[in-house]
Design a binder for these strands. Structure first.
Lengths: 326, 326
DNA sequence: ATGAAAGCGCTAACAA
DNA sequence: TTGTTAGCGCTTTCAT
């Protein structure tokens, strides 16, 4: 068996509670005793059992992170940042993937609830109602989703969409297409709302294609209808779709940006190496990961005093946008 | 407080041990009683506390997954597959990132040890000796690393390197460069060994550049020396480096594959959208993730009967390779 | 088939 | 400052 608090107590000639204090409230222990206990612990390779500790303190020092799709390049930087931030605060991170499935999301939150101090719900697809309900079972921070006053880390996609549309308007585009994202996506709704408003106020038409899965493949599949639509520019729900679309168009000999301008959202690593390089709205994913962890850990145990924060986005103009043809 | 076994016992008028049995040994409980207990549990929303259970059974139903860099596109598919496989077997997954740092790796294994039934060590950078030592503290499966008889899931990079080099030889290349990976990488050593052998037996020269961090940036930085070296083809440690290199070369007006052929390893999503599209050795990352989980869970608690498996790689010829100039 | 009781590793009153 | 004791939620003998 592994070495326990009792082994350390025996080895250092004190009671187990003194060993316990040495680790969880060192100031309550005589300096000499502490040294002795620490030495014994070190020598035996003792590590407190967090699960046992959690049983009594109610704090697990674990966080759950639930994402729609780990392999979607949008998420890894977020996961990485969250994990780093969590570990720096002495927390471990459970990571789970829902495959874009709202039912799995719910099940996952419940399954993890007892083992974590809180859950980071990243781009969740479930209903507002369900999120509010789950929130009563376990502290939650939503990322990329605003629902009531549930603590949230949001990215200003509306602002990004506005900048993107204005960029296109400035280039002279008047018929713009929006390759919409998946149903249930808050980001998608924001995007649609803001893009529509920006286009209208610029005297342009915005035609919406979707909903679509947020994938390269979905982007590819959109090529046909987009080409037929007469739009001279496309704003896509994310870079993945934009890239899929560009790939398909390229294979059909469509020149970008000469014949069609394309704008993505997220600024994933991929977008810097496509041909042409993708103009896109950069989304602060790492910052969001860190902020979400901070927000979760600063939450009152009743969820008070967490709030919602909105992170700015940036338009990155590369090579996939230009004046409309003719 | 959350609902416990005691609440269910009260609600269904049985002793807590009966409730316990209902969940962990249903066959030992009268059918009618079981129904009653289950109903009460369901009604109260009871979920067994895994941590409490682990305290007594010794099995946490958690797995730790440690990778060098979550944001390196090589890993997300592996993590995703591992998580899916784990969850299907009713296990949760801790994910941690070492930032390519061997010291962090060790610390992480130890920190996680008490909370998991085993750890998946993906492309570890620490010493063989340390891995063997840690293995005595917690069940381990190494991915992309062969060390003694530690259970391992390996990818046949040697075979991939051979195919890549033979492909280049066939195109007529006689001076080939190897953009080596990071120190401590088993894959890197395999690659170097196999590529050198294959080149030699084909009457070609293989010049090694490295070690390098496995990043796009490192690939970029290699452009100069590669250009000066007179090599007509480059095999890179991974796609990321290959892509960085291509980007830098493109910015200098070097035509690929006309002036220089480039081959990557991994077949990450990125490699399909570069220009030219990257010829690369596809590595079975998802299969490796699944296999690693299976191997860990099928391990005897003493680590017996796990073994090592080797997964095949595939050469994917795209557009970044062609005959040497002249 | 069910209940009683002990105990997993640890923390947290309370006493000394 | 340290020891004693009870108990977190659960499983597992051992009785009944």
């Amino acid at each position: 068996m592994a070495v326990t608090i009792r082994d350390v107590a025996n080895a250092s000639g004190v009671h187990i509670s003194t060993v316990s204090r040495t680790f969880s409230a060192p100031h309550l222990v005589n300096a000499e005793t502490r040294v002795r206990v620490l030495a014994a612990a070190d020598q035996l390779g003792y590590r407190p059992n967090r699960a046992a500790r959690a049983l009594i303190t109610g704090r697990t020092h674990n966080i759950g992170l639930i994402v729609a799709d780990i392999a979607n390049p949008f998420f890894p930087p977020l996961i990485k940042a969250a994990e780093a931030q969590a570990r720096q605060r002495d927390y471990h991170l459970f990571v789970a993937d829902t495959n874009e499935d709202a039912t799995v999301e719910e099940e996952l939150v419940r399954a993890l609830a007892k083992q974590v101090d809180g859950v980071l719900l990243c781009s969740p697809r479930m209903s507002n109602q369900l999120i509010e309900r789950l929130r009563r079972e376990v502290p939650l921070v939503a990322v990329n989703r605003r629902v009531g006053n549930v603590p949230a880390v949001l990215m200003n996609v509306a602002q990004g969409a506005r900048m993107a549309i204005e960029h296109l308007l400035q280039l002279g585009h008047r018929t713009i297409a929006l390759a919409a994202g998946p149903r249930g996506s808050w980001t998608g709704r924001e995007l649609r709302r803001a893009a529509t408003a920006a286009a209208r106020s610029g005297g342009a038409t915005l035609q919406v294609f979707g909903p679509n899965p947020p994938t390269e493949q979905a982007g590819r599949a959109l090529a046909d209808s987009l080409l037929r639509s007469g739009a001279t520019a496309v704003l896509a729900y994310n870079d993945l779709m934009a890239i899929g679309l560009m790939e398909e168009l390229k294979s059909r000999g469509v020149q970008m940006p000469d014949e069609l301008s394309v704008v993505g959202i997220d600024d994933i690593a991929l977008s810097r190496v496509t041909h042409p390089k993708l103009t896109t709205v950069a989304t602060p994913t790492s910052a969001a990961g860190r902020a979400a962890v901070d927000m979760l850990l600063s939450q009152d145990r009743d969820g008070a005093a967490a709030g919602q924060i909105m992170l700015d986005t940036t338009l990155i103009i590369r090579e996939s946008t230009g004046p409309p043809p003719g």
